[in-house]
Design a binder for these strands. Structure first.
Length: 286
RNA sequence: GGUGCGUUGGCCGAGGGGCUAGGCACAGGUCUGCAAAACCUGCUACAGUGGUUCGAUUCCGCUACGCACCU
């Protein structure tokens, strides 16, 4: 009976400790599902597990990709599912996955439709147009190429418009025609456990953790990544605020406050993402 | 004690006799290959009290508080 146990929850709830205990109990490695801890160039700001924690349990998808290679939920689905199959085949009955990237988790659980991956050149040129011409122009083109998508996607969201448009342009097919809501069959059973805490407590932990990151040297880490600030992977809470500080746009106290606030916002969005997933079993943590 | 100025929602902040500024926070939400991203929605306040007026947060008086100056 192959079973995938997914430990999820907002940032800073305490997933790492919880999942390590669970992994040890089942003799499972931990398959991380975190869109930022996957990058080797960041560690303090992404709250990667400590050396001891990594030594205690084998972790996958922790700092094994580079910010220079664009990573996506689609790639994660491919890599993670392949890894899971392999580990199950090797004899694991229960595997533990843990992370906070809802989109990535869903990609593993339900699968994405077979859209073509983004073509970076096309993506870049569309981004350029978004900045010069504005969304309206792209919207109109989408309305012409794929009226269905125009009606259903979030037209105010430039990123969404670009994605739909790029698929149309790349394939000559409508973006909407790819959508079949796959719910791919996986060879294993899935159980999702959500770790929860009272909002107030969660926010306190977040604020405290940010201060701790600064003590641990977040500034130096961010300064070293300043040249890479334009990379998609560097659009990460904890770094962009510091980049502004290095630019002299804010003072340090303000930057730290913003990191705390933006992390709280992030946590709230995570909660909102999982709010509609009725299959999650929520467990309050103490 | 006197004179002048000010008092706007959790915070910042514009305005001004009838037409709910805006921003931030906060709350809720969207999400099919950038997702720690991007985007959407909600939040009707003008210190208190009399008066003028058809109608006052906006005008006038008084009270309270704050600031400045004078004695």
């Amino acid at each position: 009976m192959r079973k995938l146990l997914i430990i999820l929850g907002p940032t800073a709830v305490g997933k790492t400790d919880y999942s390590i205990d669970l992994a040890l109990k089942y003799g499972s490695p931990i398959i991380s599902c975190d869109s930022r801890q996957i990058y080797r160039e960041m560690s303090i700001g992404t709250a990667v597990p400590s050396a001891e924690q990594l030594a205690a349990v084998k972790h996958y998808f922790i700092q094994d990709h580079s910010i220079h290679d664009i990573y996506t939920a689609g790639k994660y689905e491919l890599e993670a599912v392949a890894l899971l199959e392999k580990l199950f085949d090797e004899g694991h009955e229960t595997l533990v996955m843990a992370g906070g990237s809802g989109f990535y988790i869903d990609a593993v659980c339900n699968g994405l439709d077979d859209f073509p991956p983004a073509d970076q050149e096309l993506r870049a040129s569309l981004m350029e147009r978004l900045h010069t011409e504005g969304v309206e122009s792209l919207r109109l083109e989408l309305k012409f190429l794929d009226p269905e998508s125009y009606e259903t996607i979030d037209i105010a969201n430039g990123q969404r418009v670009i994605r739909a448009l790029e698929v149309c342009l790349m394939t000559g097919r409508k973006f909407s025609s790819f959508k079949t809501n796959p719910l791919k069959k996986r060879s294993f059973e899935i159980e999702k456990i959500g770790i929860s805490r009272p909002r107030e407590e969660l926010y306190e932990r977040i604020d405290r953790r940010v201060l701790q990151m600064v003590d641990e040297g977040l500034l130096e880490e961010a300064r070293g990544l300043l040249p890479e600030r334009e990379l998609p992977a560097m659009q990460t809470v904890g770094y962009r605020e510091l980049f502004d500080y290095f630019d002299g746009k804010t003072d340090l106290d303000k930057a730290v406050e913003l990191i705390q606030r933006n992390t709280r916002h992030y946590a709230k969005r995570q909660l909102s993402w999982w709010g509609r997933d009725k299959s999650i079993i929520w467990k309050p943590i103490v």
